[in-house]
Write a protein that binds this DNA or RNA. Structure first.
Length: 342
DNA sequence: AACAGGGTCAACCGCTGTTGC
DNA sequence: GGCAACAGCGGTTGACCCTGT
């Protein structure tokens, strides 16, 4: 702070570049190459600071810049790389030929990030947003709700396909994950109990009107929760399916190892009219809950929806939303050497 | 037609890391 | 080791455009 910007000195020009300035810069770099940005503008006859010249060159004038809309493959790569690298835009850009860090950053902030939020996915962690699950759990534990037989899952738009028994442990798990780095089945169960007691206490102190206000506000999350359905539905799919023939006969059917980065997704499928999930929290924990709600995507082989719809470039935003709801569901295995990717 | 509000993206800003003296 | 210059990064800004009222 307090350090003056380089362009403030000597009355150098700021703002959008003109075609004439672009031409001067390109001509100079064609002759002398780029680098030595400090002295470049003076030699090129530009009233710009070196920093501005460098930015203009790297972000716009370079011949290998690919302009235009991002393809599905590029978008998928950005999301996948972001889940590994975070906001390391230059590192992401280095893996996307022809795209600049600035372009990717802008695209993330204006398109992908908002879409993830709409879908109920935290763009930082790439996991379903904990607040939605917590809202469900809190509402569901209310004596008022149960006494009036209000179906919270329907209210939140996560009704038909999901057994509510999943949501409480899921919520507890997310809450627990956020407060502790190490989650063993034992202390997770303990935490689950603690959380449910907390939620119960929270709601016992609320008046019916307050609960109604909470329910009303929950309607705001409908878009997100509808898409969250897709994520939670993944719980019923490979590689570890938990299938219930009826309310008392449930079992996990493990179909193999969890995929790692770069591997194809196990085909996405429905389990008919069976009760999808009814689990103890131990099951979730033993199998790695974060991996169950997410699996590694692949641009070429991932069936996008149960109807096997194929999406191509130039599809609508809604289609991309739908696509992403599956595409984003991957998890970074602990064994992955992130440094190796860098 | 005029205006407001929101989205987009090129460019800027401040900071950090690297290099050379 | 200390310093300055330079290069590069990620966050932010603001002009422009589009859409809805």
């Amino acid at each position: 702070m307090g350090k003056s910007a380089c362009c403030d000195k000597n009355g150098l020009k700021k703002g959008p570049w003109t075609a004439e300035e672009d031409q001067k810069l390109m001509d100079y770099i064609k002759k002398h190459g780029h680098g030595r940005w400090r002295i470049l503008p003076k030699n090129a006859g530009l009233k710009r600071c070196g920093k501005s010249c460098r930015l203009r060159w790297t972000n716009y004038l370079r011949s290998d810049i690919k302009r235009g809309k991002f393809s599905f493959e590029e978008e998928e790569a950005i999301i996948r790389l972001h889940s590994v690298l975070g906001n390391k835009w230059s590192a992401i850009a280095s893996r996307l030929p022809g795209r600049t860090d600035n372009e990717i950053k802008n695209y993330w902030n204006t398109h992908i990030r908002k879409r993830l939020l709409r879908m109920g996915i935290d763009p930082v962690t790439h996991n379903p947003r904990v607040d939605l699950l917590q809202l469900y759990s809190v509402l569901n534990s209310s004596p008022y709700i149960s006494s009036h037989q209000i179906d919270i899952s329907s209210l939140l738009g996560i009704g038909s396909m999901l057994n509510p028994n999943l949501l409480n442990p899921a919520t507890s798990f997310f809450s627990f994950q956020s407060s502790s780095q190490e989650a063993s089945p034992e202390n997770v169960q303990e935490n689950q109990l603690d959380n449910s007691q907390v939620h119960q206490n929270q709601f016992q102190s609320l008046q019916p009107s307050q609960i109604q206000a909470c329910i009303d506000s929950s309607a705001l999350f409908l878009d997100e929760t509808q898409l969250l359905q897709a994520h939670l539905k993944q719980l019923s799919t490979s590689p570890a399916n938990f299938i219930c023939q009826n309310s008392s006969q449930c079992s996990w059917q493990e179909t193999g190892n969890f995929p790692t980065m770069g591997e194809s997704l196990v085909p996405y499928h429905e389990i008919g009219n069976q009760t999808l999930i009814k689990s103890s929290f131990e099951n979730l924990s033993n199998l790695g809950f974060s991996s169950l709600i997410s699996s590694t995507p692949s641009s070429s082989t991932t069936p996008l929806q149960s109807s096997s719809t194929t999406y191509v470039n130039g599809s609508t935003e809604d289609e991309r939303d739908s696509y992403c709801s599956n595409m984003l569901m991957f998890d970074i295995p602990n064994s992955l050497d992130v440094n190796g990717l860098l």
